[in-house]
Simulated scan of single mutants.
Amino acid sequence: MGKNMKDWLRFSVAFWHTFRGTRGEMWPWEDGTNSLAMAKRRMRANFEFLEKLGVDRWCFRDRDIATDAETLEETKANLDEVVALAKELQVTKIRPLWGMAQLFM
């Protein structure tokens, strides 16, 4: 039908399963904190992982890529900073397949 399988079924890596873990795993890049610096390390690790796998799409939830802070303004600033880093790291062909607002916490 004129499309590659890649065009029909787009594969992506879910950030929250791979880089946030579900059981408190300590990955080599983790320092045990939930700091903005840690969020940036996770984002860099995400893009390195995607490049090594040859995967060109990723998906995420906003609260998983950036840390919460003491105030809503600081929390939004953290998200803005991590999104800016993700945008900078997307100079390759890696792009988000989708993003989601985590409104259920």
Results as ranks from 00 to 15, higher is better:
residue 27 W to E: 08
residue 57 R to W: 14
residue 91 V to P: 01
residue 8 W to A: 13
residue 81 E to T: 07
residue 21 G to D: 12
residue 58 W to I: 04
residue 45 A to F: 01
residue 7 D to L: 02
residue 53 L to P: 10
residue 31 D to C: 02
residue 8 W to H: 13
residue 13 V to Y: 00
residue 64 D to W: 01
residue 36 L to Y: 10
residue 5 M to K: 11
residue 93 K to Q: 14
residue 65 I to A: 00
residue 36 L to P: 08
residue 81 E to D: 14
residue 46 N to L: 15
residue 89 L to D: 04
residue 44 R to D: 04
residue 88 E to A: 01
residue 92 T to F: 08
residue 103 L to M: 03
residue 66 A to Q: 00
residue 90 Q to W: 05
residue 7 D to V: 05
residue 50 L to S: 03
residue 85 L to F: 06
residue 39 A to V: 07
residue 103 L to H: 09
residue 14 A to R: 02
residue 61 R to L: 10
residue 28 P to V: 09
residue 48 E to K: 08
residue 79 L to G: 05
residue 26 M to T: 15
residue 71 T to K: 08
residue 58 W to D: 03
residue 73 E to W: 03
residue 84 A to P: 05
residue 47 F to G: 02
residue 92 T to N: 15
residue 63 R to P: 00
residue 50 L to G: 02
residue 95 R to C: 11
residue 104 F to P: 02
residue 27 W to T: 03
residue 16 W to P: 04
residue 79 L to V: 02
residue 8 W to D: 12
residue 52 K to M: 09
residue 59 C to S: 15
residue 66 A to C: 09
residue 54 G to L: 07
residue 76 K to L: 15
residue 96 P to E: 08
residue 58 W to L: 07
residue 16 W to G: 07
residue 13 V to L: 10
residue 57 R to M: 09
residue 1 M to K: 10
residue 45 A to T: 08
residue 89 L to W: 01
residue 82 V to W: 00
residue 83 V to M: 11
residue 47 F to E: 02
residue 25 E to V: 02
residue 37 A to L: 08
residue 69 A to W: 06
residue 14 A to S: 14
residue 24 G to N: 06
residue 38 M to K: 11
residue 11 F to V: 13
residue 69 A to Y: 09
residue 43 M to D: 02
residue 44 R to H: 00
residue 48 E to I: 08
residue 23 R to I: 14
residue 44 R to N: 08
residue 23 R to P: 03
residue 36 L to K: 03
residue 34 N to M: 11
residue 99 G to N: 05
residue 58 W to Y: 14
residue 49 F to I: 00
residue 41 R to S: 04
residue 58 W to V: 03
residue 103 L to G: 05
residue 51 E to M: 06
residue 85 L to D: 10
residue 23 R to C: 11
residue 23 R to K: 15
residue 104 F to V: 10
residue 24 G to K: 03
residue 60 F to C: 09
residue 64 D to C: 06
residue 84 A to S: 12
residue 101 A to V: 12
residue 70 E to P: 01
residue 19 F to P: 01
residue 104 F to R: 10
residue 92 T to Q: 15
residue 32 G to R: 06
residue 74 E to A: 12
residue 33 T to M: 09
residue 86 A to L: 10
residue 103 L to S: 08
residue 84 A to C: 05
residue 98 W to M: 12
residue 64 D to L: 08
residue 14 A to V: 12
residue 57 R to F: 15
residue 5 M to E: 13
residue 63 R to H: 06
residue 93 K to E: 15
